[in-house]
Nucleic acid binder design. Structure first.
Lengths: 229, 229
DNA sequence: GCGACTTTGTGCGTGTATTCACAAAGGCTT
DNA sequence: AAGCCTTTGTGAATACACGCACAAAGTCGC
C-alpha cells in the first residue's frame, strides 16, 4: 500500500516524542486518514495490535519497515545534477530511510568533477559501469525532459527495474520495470484547479456542458491568444 | 480530475510538433492511460470532440487550461530557500503554466538578500506583508519539517487557501484550505517496496500472517537494532 | 448524395477501495 | 476473580474507478 510510508513517518515522529503505544485512532489522526482504513491496512501485514491497548510503536515501525524493504540498503543513482538533482543529493530523508546515493551523473562537462554532498559528479558516459560496479537498484532521473527517455533506456538495459522520474515526460519502459513520476507543476495545477473552484470559476460545478459550447473550428485563433497571453 | 494536467502536457507536446487533431487513442497512448478513461474524462468538461475525426488540439488545450484555471495568473510564494526551494524557484514548468513566483522567503540571515532566478530572497518576518501586497494565492512550503506547521499557520491566517507542502509532515489546516503534499522519500519507499516484491522479500504475497509472529513485548530491543543499523 | 468507415460518448458489468458498525479480545479496577 | 471498559480486527454495505463494447454521429471517398 502507498500509505505505509505515511504511517511510518507518523510513527517515527511519535517515537521521537517517546510514545510507546498508540491507538489506531491517534495514529490515523496523525497520518490524516480514517482509523478503520488504518486498521485494515495494518491487519494486512499481520495482527500486531493489542485489543484494549493499541499498537506498540517500536514493533510497528519494525514491521512496516520490513514490509517496505527498508531494513535493507537500497543503492540509488541520481542522473541529472541541475538544481533538482542537487536538492535530491542533499535530501536527508533518503539516508535515514535506507537509501544510499552512490552516484551523481551529468552530461555537462562543467558540472562533472564538482563535489556535492560528499560525492563527485561523474560523466553520464560511465552510466553502465557505475550501475554494474556499485549495484545500483534504483535510478532517479532529474534530467531535462528531452534527455529523460534515452537515459531511462540505458538505465533499464543495465538491469535497473525501478525508476523515479522527475522529468516532465511519460517514460515508456518494458514490462516488469516500475516507474514513479513526480511532477512539480502538476501539483500546482491541481491546486489552481481547486482554487478556481472556490472562486466560482468556469465549470464551477463541473458541468462544462452548461457552458456556451464554441464549435471547434470557429474563431480558431481567439482562444489561442487567451492561452499564450 | 488529477489527470488533466497530464493530458495538457501531452497536448502541448503534440502542439509543438504541429499536430492539429488527435484521436482519443493516440492521446491516451501519449498520456499513458486507457482511451476510454480519457474520453470519459474529457466528456466531463463538455463534448469537444468530433466523431470520426478526433479532438482539435488547440481547442482542447484551451478548454483544459480554462478548466484548470491556467488562463489566469497565479501568484506563488516559495518559503524556505534551501536546495529544494532553489530548485523550485528555477523550475521552468511554473512560469510556462501561468504560475508566477512573486516571493522567496527564508529565516536564515545568510540567505536573505541573495538573488536567485531574478528574485531577491526576503526575510520570513515580512511574510504577511508580502502575501497581502502581492496578492499571493498559493504558498509553497519547502522548509525543514519543524518549521512547516508554524509557517503554514501564518500563511493560512494571511488568507492563503492553497498550500503545496514539500516538508515531511502532515500539515493541519482549517476547513476550506487545500494542502497537497509531495514527499520525495515516500516515492522512493514505494519503489523499494515493489523492488523487494520482485526479489521475493518478506510478505512476498502480502500474507504477513504466514510469518512467525513475534509477540509484541518479546525481545523488545532486537528489532530496533535491525531498523537503526 | 450515399454508403462505408472512423471515432466519440456512454451504458453496463466488474473489481477494488472506503466506511460503518459491531463482536471478539484483552487489560484494568475493584 | 469477575465485570467493565477500551480498542482491535473484520463482515457487510456503499461508493467509486476502471475498462469493455457498442450505438450514435460525423467524415470522406466515390
Amino acid at each position: 500500500m502507498a500509505r505505509l510510508p505515511v504511517y511510518l513517518r507518523a510513527l517515527h515522529s511519535l517515537q521521537d516524542r517517546g510514545v510507546a503505544t498508540v491507538s489506531s485512532e491517534e495514529l490515523a489522526a496523525a497520518a490524516g486518514v480514517n482509523s478503520a482504513k488504518l486498521r485494515k491496512d495494518l491487519s494486512h501485514l499481520g495482527s500486531y495490535g493489542t485489543r484494549g491497548v493499541g499498537y506498540e510503536v517500536e514493533y510497528l515501525v519494525y514491521q512496516i519497515s520490513r514490509e517496505l524493504g527498508l531494513t535493507q540498503d537500497w543503492v540509488v543513482a541520481i542522473i541529472g545534477v541541475g538544481n533538482l538533482g542537487r536538492a535530491l543529493a542533499g535530501y536527508g530523508g533518503f539516508a535515514s530511510r535506507g537509501f544510499r546515493v552512490a552516484g551523481l551523473l551529468d552530461a555537462d562537462d562543467e558540472i562533472v568533477g564538482e563535489e556535492i554532498s560528499g560525492l563527485t559528479v561523474e560523466h553520464i558516459d560511465r552510466l553502465e559501469d557505475i550501475i554494474a560496479e556499485r549495484g545500483v537498484s534504483i535510478a532517479v532521473i532529474a534530467t531535462p525532459a528531452n534527455a529523460a527517455q534515452p537515459v531511462c533506456d540505458r538505465v533499464v538495459s543495465s538491469g535497473v527495474t525501478s525508476v523515479l522520474n522527475f522529468a516532465p515526460v511519460v517514460l515508456s519502459v518494458p514490462e516488469g520495470v516500475d516507474v514513479r513520476k513526480v511532477d512539480l507543476s502538476i501539483e500546482l495545477q491541481i491546486l489552481a484547479f481547486h482554487e478556481q473552484r472556490k472562486a466560482g470559476g468556469p465549470g464551477g460545478d463541473f458541468d462544462g456542458l452548461a457552458e456556451p459550447k464554441g464549435p471547434p473550428g470557429a474563431t480558431p485563433t481567439q482562444y489561442v491568444e487567451a492561452v499564450e497571453a
